[in-house]
Amino acid sequence: MKKYLAVIVILIITSFMFIIGIDFVFGAPANSDMDDYFIEHGQEQIATNNIVTTVVFDYRGFDTLGESTVLFTAVIGVAMMFRKLGEGD
């Protein structure tokens, strides 16, 4: 009984996603002013050829700072968890 309910919920979610997005058109982003600015001015401001690296490390450097912190925290968590068992050194 519970399983049928879950299947019905999944079908509702899927049909909802199909209905709202079936005329979704990819290939022409509506608002691309920010990205056009990055593509045009990235080379003269940051002197980098790879615009994705420019966005990752410079224009959105704080995102990457948080990302590195998340990675560090996750690794520390894994180390703590196994060290608690007394099997790590």
């Binding site: 994705v52 959105r60 995102d63 990302e67």
Partner: peptide, 16 residues
């Protein structure tokens, strides 16, 4: 470029 940069962030956080 911005969606690709944010996807990079998302992938690394997913691994962690």
């Amino acid at each position: 470029p911005t969606p690709q940069a944010l996807c990079l962030t998302s992938i690394v956080i997913g691994v962690a």
